[in-house]
């Protein structure tokens, strides 16, 4: 055996020990189930999914073409198109607003980051209590109902025009702490001298912001966008707690994830169809992250 080969193999036992545990977990709980789901997606099963029969890969295209799936994708995209830009804009606004040394600024920063302490369940229940049309807070403020009767009839969560936006607001609120913290950190990473030299060059506040601050925030904003987008595409808890995918009949808040796991889903006892939808969700997210990474030309990674 040559020396090079020897060195190539010398570390193998140690590598096995170090990589083994991670590899086992990732293969068993990420790659294997993905493969199984892809296979299951061309099957139809009995209610316990103990007996499945293949119906052909055409099931994927059929699901793709189906009204329910397209509606769910459409709802999900709308949800993302509301939560991501608004969440991002609010995050930037708050961060810029609080990025100044002045009295009591610490208090405001704490307030702006506070929602990071709320999980999706906590935030959704808080908003449920605000929005519910009978016992909710907003519904019991008289003058507000005079201006916006929809709060009471049928209720922001029950009206097909406002349900998704209402869920989105709750979601934006819950994510705002996170967005604020990240962008604040990004702002603080920008060297002060750059801002000041731009000031010396006579750039006004807004131009300084668009020409200096925003470009330098690029990686931070990309990261935030990616995280917010993936959260939007995987939204489940807020829908489960606030609307159950309704209001019917439009299923105005049935997102793709809710179509798979929601209790009112029409495919709830059909494991094969659920798998097909899940795999298609994966493909969509894959395409989306490829777009995001390529479009912004920067390599940034985000977590689970």
């Amino acid at each position: 055996m040559s020396g090079a080969t020897k060195r190539r193999w010398r570390d193998v036992p140690l590598a096995a020990v170090m990589l083994g545990p991670s590899l086992v977990v990732l293969v068993a709980f990420v790659l294997y189930p993905l493969g199984r789901a892809v296979w299951l997606g061309q099957q139809r099963c009995n209610v316990q999914a103990t007996k499945c029969r293949s119906v052909g890969w055409g099931q994927y295209t059929d699901v793709l073409m189906s009204n329910e799936f397209q509606s769910a994708v459409w709802v999900t995209v709308k949800f993302a198109l509301i939560t991501v830009p608004v969440g991002l804009a609010l995050g930037i606004g708050l961060a810029v607003l609080a990025d100044k040394h002045m009295r009591h600024i610490g208090f405001f920063r704490t307030v702006f980051s506070s929602t990071v302490a709320t999980s999706v369940a906590v935030a959704s229940l808080m908003w449920l209590f605000l929005l519910q049309p009978s016992v909710g807070v907003l519904a019991n403020i008289g003058w507000l109902n005079d201006i916006f009767p929809v709060i009471k009839e049928p209720g922001l969560l029950n009206d097909k025009g406002t349900a998704l936006s209402s869920v989105a607001i709750s979601s934006i609120w819950a994510n705002l702490g996170f967005t604020f913290i990240i962008i604040t950190a990004g702002l603080q990473g920008i060297p002060r001298e750059l801002q000041e030299s731009a000031f010396v060059d006579g750039a006004g506040g807004w131009r300084r912001f668009t020409n200096v601050t925003l470009p330098l925030l690029g990686p931070t904003l990309l990261f935030t966008t990616v995280v917010l987008t993936s959260r939007a595409f995987q939204a489940y808890g807020e829908i489960d707690l606030l609307t159950n995918g309704g209001p019917v009949p439009q299923q105005s808040t049935t997102t793709v994830t809710y179509l798979i796991y929601g209790s009112s889903s029409i495919i709830k006892s059909n494991e094969g169809l659920k798998a097909a939808v899940a795999v298609l969700l994966f493909v969509i997210l894959l395409g989306l992250s490829a777009l995001q990474f390529r479009g912004l030309g920067k390599r940034v990674h985000y977590g689970s």
């Binding site: 061309q42 119906v55 052909g56 059929d62 329910e68 029409i266 097909a276």
Partner: peptide, 11 residues
């Protein structure tokens, strides 16, 4: 013009 999702895969 898709059909219902429950018809998927049924030829």
């Amino acid at each position: 013009g898709g059909g219902s999702i429950v018809d998927s895969g049924t030829t």
